[in-house]
Each structure stands twice: as C-alpha cells, then as structure tokens.
Computed example of a mutant assay.
Amino acid sequence: LKVEMYYLREFQAYSELTSAIEAYISFYNHDRFQKRLNGLSPVEYRSQAA
C-alpha cells in the first residue's frame, strides 16, 4: 500500500488521503491480479475456493 500508492503522491488533506486509501484497497481486492493466486484477484480467488 505505501510503496504502490502513498509514497508516489502528495496529499493536501486528510480526507484526500483516506479516499485514496479506500480506492486503492478496492483496486487491490477486485482488480489487481496476483501471481501467487494463479493470476486471480483476491476476491476471485476466495470466491473460487468457496
């Protein structure tokens, strides 16, 4: 989170930071494919296991 989002940007307000963190968490869980999960996003991997 810090390396991919926080360190690359400068935030002017706390609310801007919190909305950016929420957007990144959503991206990470739904859209970011991970090699260790066989090329699936975490949500896709969990739904496949169930």
Rank of each mutant, 00 (worst) to 15 (best):
K2E: 15
L40E: 00
S26W: 14
Y28R: 00
A13H: 08
R46M: 07
R36Y: 02
K2L: 15
R9M: 13
Y24M: 08
F33V: 12
D31C: 07
N38M: 13
N38K: 11
H30K: 12
V3N: 13
Y28M: 02
H30G: 06
S15I: 05
L40Q: 00
E22V: 12
F33C: 05
A49P: 06
S15D: 15
P42D: 03
E10T: 07
M5R: 03
Q48H: 09
D31Y: 07
F11Q: 02
Y24D: 01
R46Q: 05
N38G: 11
R46H: 06
A20W: 00
A23W: 12
R36H: 05
S19Y: 13
L17T: 00
E44T: 04
K35Q: 10
R32A: 15
R36N: 06
D31V: 03
S41K: 02
K2I: 15
E10F: 08
R32H: 08
D31S: 12
E4V: 04
Q34T: 07
L17N: 01
N38T: 11
I21M: 07
N38I: 09
Q48I: 03
N29I: 03
L1M: 14
V3E: 11
P42W: 01
T18Y: 04
E22T: 06
L1Y: 09
F11W: 06
E44A: 06
F33W: 06
S15M: 06
Q48C: 05
V3Y: 15
Y6T: 04
M5Q: 13
E4Q: 13
F11Y: 08
E4Y: 13
L8W: 11
Y14I: 11
I25D: 09
G39K: 01
E10Y: 11
R46L: 05
E22Y: 12
S15F: 03
A20P: 00
S47Y: 04
Y45W: 09
G39Y: 01
D31M: 05
